[in-house]
Nucleic acid binder design. Structure first.
Lengths: 250, 250
DNA sequence: CGGCACGTTGAGCGGCGTCAATTTATGTGG
DNA sequence: CCACATAAATTGACGCCGCTCAACGTGCCG
């Protein structure tokens, strides 16, 4: 299920201030906003020597259900779906990971979770054991992992409200709102916010606890209500975030 | 909303090995299984001096939505509901905390969450600032917080599957199963597992994304299907956990 | 062009919500 | 102890939102 193309990286060079920063990490978002920002130069070097870049094509999975997790990753770009499966095939997407999120479940097997690329994804991947050992040595690293985990817990609980108490229409609006908030801020064009939808209708359904047909119908309904406009099936514009928030029940 | 009766505690005495263990902490579950287990004697003493026991009556809240969180707590016994509210009044319970769970959201305001006692609850409560400072000094303490946060994230994601993809019947069964797994293990009596239900039908509805009436009907349906037996409305017996798991769709 | 995945739309049904009545627990004062 | 009040839980009748099944449209690639 997961065919990836690793590329070993041990190139590095000194920074102006004498600190050694691996070349691979130089322009990496995760080094600034992600967990790697916690690492001093020498630890970063140690980690970069054992880390590999991976490219996943759409649909390829990082960790399969029940697999032992042998590696952690940072998401460099793209979107990773975290999903669960019931024995009879019903599926629920329980989270989306964007750059520069950390991917992995420290101290435990991945709790029956599947991580799959939605669209092409670039990862920076490293061995589990080595990273956990660095976490023990480096409290600041563990602190960052904790901070991210707490944020993900907040997001998961927000989504529980959406799944349990919102109507189909409100669920769709909530999803669009979430994507808009994760999108890069745009120059105020007066034409509203344009966003690309990383998930197919089917994945949106699995994320929102709906069927494909209901997702499609409610997208149409929001368009007819002029809350959104379609550039294509996978790209919409939002004339008024306020109106979308109202549609999301917030 | 929250009227509590604090009782200052600074009594303590030396342990046989010379280590000082505050008297208050001596028989405390949280010291062994909870986060306090991470603390050496002197830190435990420091924390115990600023901690207070609180008793909440059913329905009293620990942290109100939008309040600044001024304290963290350990749950000593009882059950605490974590819930969210939509502007129009719809409610969703996003988690249950049992002893010896840690209660609080480090590094941030409580993300619009309400924590409320379901039945009488005993807490051990301490000032936020002091505890966060101890977290900085003591990586092992932060490590335990991380471990618990990761578990809660797993649980939240499990529940997302339940909320998004299961039928009313399966949701009820999943809830009963979760309570059974949190209950103290019982001597094999041959009469099945007896469990007390900490939530009212209304709270079960808010936890499962259902209405009171549907909860009641599906409880009756499970009884008629002989998956559960009623000792009272708040206490059931489970003849076969396997059968209950099947009813939960697992 | 055909083949295929993805998305949209329609018709009809059923699970769960709504509204309402009744029964059962829980407490409170005489 | 009973009488009464109040809340919690159950049960029934009915309607609607979202699911099912099916047909059709659309874009992409060989």
């Amino acid at each position: 299920m997961s065919s990836v193309r690793p590329k070993r990286s041990d190139v590095h060079h000194p920074e102006p201030d004498g600190q050694v920063v691996p070349k691979l990490c130089e322009s990496c978002e995760a080094r600034h906003r992600g967990v790697c920002g916690a690492l001093p130069g020498d630890d970063l070097l140690r980690l970069s020597k054992i880390s590999v870049r991976k490219t996943l094509k759409s649909g390829e999975s990082v960790v399969c259900d029940e697999d032992d997790v042998i590696s952690f990753s940072n998401v460099l770009n793209g979107v990773v779906k975290l999903s669960k499966l019931l024995p009879d095939g019903r599926q629920q997407i329980v989270g989306l990971q964007f750059a520069p999120d950390f991917l992995g479940r420290p101290f435990r097997a991945e709790s029956h979770l599947t991580a799959e690329a939605s669209g092409d994804v670039h990862l920076c991947s490293f061995p589990r054991a080595e990273f956990e050992s660095m976490m023990r040595d480096n409290p600041e690293l563990e602190h960052r992992i904790l901070a991210q985990t707490l944020e993900q817990l907040d997001e998961a609980r927000d989504w529980m409200m959406t799944l349990g108490r919102k109507t189909a229409r409100e669920k769709i609006a909530s999803y669009l709102l979430m994507i808009a908030r994760h999108s890069a801020p745009q120059p105020p064009s007066g034409q509203g916010v344009a966003i690309d939808l990383p998930l197919s209708r089917g994945d949106m359904a699995d994320f929102l606890g709906l069927t494909i047909e209901t997702v499609s119908r409610q997208m149409t309904a929001l368009r007819k209500a002029k809350v959104i406009e379609f550039d294509s099936a996978r790209a919409v514009r939002i004339p008024s975030l306020r109106a979308l928030e109202r549609a999301a029940g917030e």
